[in-house]
Design a protein around this nucleic acid. Structure first.
Lengths: 402, 402
DNA sequence: TCTGCTTAGTTCAGGACTAAATAAACAGTA
DNA sequence: TACTGTTTATTTAGTCCTGAACTAAGCAGA
């Protein structure tokens, strides 16, 4: 059956579908409030979606003093999206449903610096897609450790991958024939958090990641802050001292050079806490069994992160801080240093800002990348451009082909 | 004559007027591009404005290969706005034209902590207004050293003024019977810079102020970033060390406690550079006549500011940094410390970001506050609410009463 | 049971806006 | 001089969306 809407940018229709997919059934009034459109328009749009067979009316919800709401739900099995995490030595894939849940995941070694990296990447994605369900595929999200000009364009600068102005978006788009959204990996996490996590109810929050590197993403007024060149959130290279260990970025005194996993291991080796050749997992194990020197290494890192993050919170004024990343496995040990330093350096008015540490999983990065695709229906304009339009079209058409 | 438009929110009409007032005559096509609406709509809107007698067609501009543009200009003498700077011990007023130029200014002692401060403030404003021109008054902008819930509401938290949740906006609105916009003073500068200054051509920039305090404002995607509680930009309380001099905010190691004017004077006294009782002007004078110890005090401050600001630039990713404030008088001396520290701590990709130091005048703060009023026609929604609507209505009606 | 209150949803009229086609008015060029 | 290309401005037809008025459907209390 043909969809009644023409080729126009139908942000609202797909936002309704995405919201129903992500948050479950909702009433018209609720949808109108959430997407901030008038109830009148919502009536009209849902009518179209119902006659198009994409949405059904469910049971009435119990009344709360007024006319009971008639709930609306998705008809289709929902779309799916692919999320990809790219780092220097491996790639990870996930396939997620429209509600953000992971259906399938996979991880492989990969040489990002190879000359054939782009072609290789495309092949790997293709074969991952082929192994998946046959539900309609909305698009592919890619998270990279670097800055991206625009998510819908996808030109990447990523020193860690040896990438300078690599047009990965354009390249994948052509070879895959699918909508592709590329974004900095921490920003991708922020998109996921905004859609499915704690950010759903908070329009101003800060994401901080710890692990092999240190990163941040800023969400202000519900929008991910990208900065002039898509490079906002580079917390890892915040200088915390005039001198200090040299960072892989070439500068001295970067936060990351003090508290990345490699830095912690170096510190532990220097202090004789670990035997030569040991790594971060040994350090964590030592701390876990109560080795106070090992715990001290984490606490020192926590103190430095706490102080620096306090400054960033003063400047950015979020309502919530979310800590993520592989390093959160050791958060219990960071915490003893982080909490006092963080709180002590905040202004009185901000001192009680909540810091949430969410459970971290191996595929969280890739899951974030997939959220880039699932978030596009909600953005009224701009960043994703053509790719956003394509994803919306796919979402609206998904059930029509049955 | 009655204005054809009803009570609806006519953002575009007033944005056209404001743009013509601020930037001078422009063609329809130019206006359409600047305000990002279709040429068709611009034809329609300008026709209304012309028949309403608010805008006139001027000479044709010389062609650049196509049909020559017919320029449009304002008919009315333009509106005016009042800007007010409030600090602990004095207030400053300016009256500005619609192009942002200062017509008149005044400064008086004032006790912000007094119980009657609000009533007093209102009286002073009233008498300043009465002394002014009789051009239509669009509204009153107030800049405060603290955080404001919403510019159109105006509830202020300002430790420096001993103000806790003071509803200055509501209060002034009632007593003056005029639209009142209240905002943090550095954010007000940012609004002015965005309208009339270097920010006109840059959507992502950072304002930094040095002087009695240290502040910042962040403009991202053309919008002033306010944070969750309107307190974004508190650069002064960025912790730069675990310990350190205690700050008036109560914490230790704040940037402001190291590089505010008071801190510089203290440092100079400690080092024996200045005799007891001397102040910042003596320190500047000493540096100006080449006293290397005095210069060293400024350079140390510059180094610390440079390093911290480099971090903020990494996190926020602006395209431009603008330095303002009373302290810029001594910038030549800061610079020797600032430049190397700032550049050395930036990632290679950002190292060439321009830092502009603009000429500072006594009434710049108040001028910024006035810009809050002049900027309202351009914001399509939200922050200023009713006050914005009132200001727009006044702008559109300004000439109709002739 | 009736009245008032609250919330949900619909209808209708009309305003804001755009895309596309067209006209107008130039510059450059062979 | 006619032709091409460019930029500006206008007209037209129609889309998107909202406000206001209204209906629908419950609850709570007199």
């Amino acid at each position: 059956m043909a969809i009644s809407s023409t080729e126009r940018t139908d942000v609202n229709r797909s936002a309704i579908l995405a919201h129903l997919g992500a948050s479950g059934p909702a009433s018209r009034a609720e949808l109108a409030r959430t997407l901030s459109v008038s109830p009148a328009l919502m009536t009209q749009l849902t009518r179209e979606l119902i006659t198009d067979g994409l949405v059904v009316e469910l049971e009435s919800a119990p009344s709360s003093g007024g006319r009971p709401a008639r709930m609306l739900g998705l008809v289709a099995g929902g779309g799916r999206a692919i999320g990809i995490k790219v780092v220097a030595d491996h790639i990870a894939f996930v396939e997620v449903g429209i509600d953000g849940r992971v259906l399938r995941s996979q991880s492989e070694p990969f040489d990002a610096a190879a000359a054939t990296a782009l072609a290789e990447l495309s092949d790997r994605i293709r074969s991952f897609i082929d192994g998946g369900a046959d539900a309609p595929l909305l698009g592919v999200g890619v998270g990279v450790p670097g800055s991206v000009d625009l998510p819908g364009s996808g030109v990447v600068d990523a020193p860690q991958l040896d990438w300078v102005q690599v047009p990965i978006g354009e390249s994948l788009r052509r070879s895959l024939g699918l909508p592709v959204i590329v974004e900095n990996n921490v920003n991708a996490l922020a998109a996921a958090e905004r859609l499915f996590g704690l950010g759903r109810t908070t329009a101003n929050f800060l994401i901080v990641t710890i692990g092999t590197g240190v990163g941040a993403a800023i969400v202000a007024d519900g929008r991910i802050m990208r900065g002039a060149s898509g490079g906002a959130g580079e917390l890892g290279h915040f200088p915390v001292a005039d001198e200090g260990p040299s960072c892989r970025c070439g500068n001295l005194g970067c936060l990351e050079a003090h508290i990345s996993e490699d830095a912690l291991v170096s510190a532990a080796l220097e202090r004789g806490v670990l035997p030569a050749g040991a790594g971060i997992s040994e350090l964590l194990a030592a701390a876990d069994r109560g080795d106070s020197s090992a715990i001290g290494v984490f606490e020192d890192a926590g103190r430095l992160l706490g102080r620096t993050l306090a400054g960033v919170v003063q400047v950015v004024d979020p309502a919530l801080v979310i800590v993520l990343g592989e390093g959160t496995a050791a958060w219990a040990h960071w915490s003893g240093g982080f909490e006092p330093a963080f709180r002590a350096h905040l202004m009185a008015r901000r001192r009680s800002i909540p810091v949430e540490v969410e459970r971290w999983q191996d595929d969280s990065w890739a899951q974030g990348a997939a959220a880039l695709v699932l978030a596009t229906p909600f953005e009224s304009e701009g960043l994703t451009g053509d790719q956003g339009r394509l994803i919306r079209a796919r979402l609206v058409e998904q059930a029509a082909r049955q």
